[in-house]
């Protein structure tokens, strides 16, 4: 169904219409939330909160790219949750990273357990590298290099100029590279050699 029609019906109190939009975008939005927060449970909480906020703020949507409008809410909500979590964080076992289930990260069933462990470590390293970035750089690199958004879309989502977005992306890439190079033994050989 036409997206504008779904939005219009949502504004008239048709929750089913809005849920069709949720179904359409929840995959993309969860990917972004997960990469920004580097934690599945936190990402799920933030995403649910994002959709509730989006429904409540639908009157403020003034047309244009709905996906960008929605992703801006998702990004901002993720950072709100991160800041809130940092304030509440205490040194307890609950805050320790929880190991993902094997099945959720397994993409190649032909790989050996050793290869799987290496890939898990590499992904964890990349996740840590991304989360080590300042918010604006993290958003830029996640949207561009992980999720594949265009510069213009990122500019809309982050309310920044395209030139600024490119600049942030470049700086974010440089910082991730530097972070990864400190753990070169976990990197693929090709990448490790290029760093030398």
């Amino acid at each position: 169904m036409d997206q504008d029609n779904l939005i219009e019906r949502s504004l008239q109190g048709d929750l089913e219409a809005f849920n069709q939009l949720v179904i359409e975008y929840q995959g993309l939005a969860y990917g972004v939330a997960y990469r920004l927060m580097d934690d599945p449970d936190s990402a799920a909480d933030a995403l649910q909160d994002s959709f509730i906020k989006a429904f409540r703020a639908l009157e403020n949507y003034r047309g244009g790219n709905f996906k960008s409008w929605l992703m801006r809410i998702v990004v901002n909500t993720c950072y709100d949750h991160l800041r809130s979590r940092q304030r509440k964080r205490t040194e307890s076992l609950d805050d320790m990273p929880v190991e993902d289930e094997y099945v959720t990260v397994l993409t190649d069933r032909s790989e050996t357990p050793h290869e799987y462990a290496e890939r898990r470590e590499l992904q964890a390293l990349i996740g840590s590298a991304i989360t080590s970035l300042p918010e604006v750089l993290r958003t830029a690199i996640v949207l561009r290099d992980v999720e594949g958004y265009a510069y213009e879309e990122i500019a809309e989502i982050t309310s920044a100029a395209v030139g600024t977005v490119k600049s942030r992306i470049n700086r974010a890439r440089g910082r991730v590279r530097d972070y990864l190079s400190k753990n070169a033994e976990l990197l693929p050989a090709v990448y490790r050699h290029s760093l030398e």
Binding site: Q26, Q48, V146, R177
Partner: peptide
Amino acid sequence: LRQTVQLLQEVPSVPLPRSFTL
């Protein structure tokens, strides 16, 4: 930088844990 981008692009997409319909 090009190698870094390639590495980032190879990060697998995460499966949706549940539906987020309201």
